[in-house]
Amino acid sequence: MVGVAEGSRHPQLIGTTVNRRCAGLGRQRFTHCEGYPMTEINPTVAGRVSTANRPWWVGLPIIVMGAIWLYGGGSIRATTGFIGIGPAAIVDTVGAALVVLGILLVIQALRGVPFTPEDEEGANAAAPPSRKAFCLALGGIVLPLGTIQWLGFPLTAMLVFTLVTHAFGSRRTVLDLAIGLALSSFSWYGFSKLGIGLGHFLPLIG
C-alpha cells in the first residue's frame, strides 16, 4: 500500500481509498456488482464459492500494464521548462496504482473471493459458455481488420453482420447477407450524402 501513497501525487485521492478498503478484503462478500448487471434470471444457487473458480491470473495483465506505464513514464523526456509537475507524473502514478491493484487482485483471487456475479453462478453451472458462438462473434469484430482496406465498408459490414447474427444462432445465411448488405449500403450512402466518407464503395475497383 505504501507504493500507492508514494507514487501518488494525489494522496487524498488514492492512498486512503485503497488503504481503508483493503484491510479485510479476503473476507468481503460481494453480493452484487454493477458492471455486469445480468439479472434475476436464475437466482437459485446463491453465493457458493467453488474452489475451481479462483482466477488468480486475472491480476497479471493489470500488473503488466502497470509495469509498461511505469516504464513509459520513465522514458518521457522532462527537458522542457514546465512549471509544477511534469508530463511523466500522472503516467507514473497510474502505473504504480495498476501494479498495486493487480497484486491485490491476485491475492483476492487466491483467497477465494468470487469473481463471477453472484446472481449468475447458477446460470453458469447450468449452461457453460458457448465457445462456438463466442468465436463467431469475435470473428465478426476482428474481420474488419483484414478486409476493410480492400473490401471496403459496405461489404465488410455485411460480413460482420452475418457473422454476428450467426453467433446468435441465426442459420439463414443468404437472408442475413442480404439484410447486412442493405443496412451497410444504406449507411454508406447516407453518410456520404451527409459528407462523411466511409471510404470507397469497393476499394478494389477504386
Partner: peptide, 23 residues
C-alpha cells in the same frame, strides 16, 4: 436477438470507421 446484436455491431462500426477511417 441475432438482428439486434448484428445491428449494434454494425452501427458501432459506422460510428468508429465513419469518424476516423482509421485502421
Amino acid at each position: 436477438r441475432p438482428y439486434i446484436y448484428g445491428g449494434i455491431v454494425m452501427f458501432a462500426m459506422v460510428g468508429v470507421w465513419g469518424i476516423s477511417t482509421s485502421w
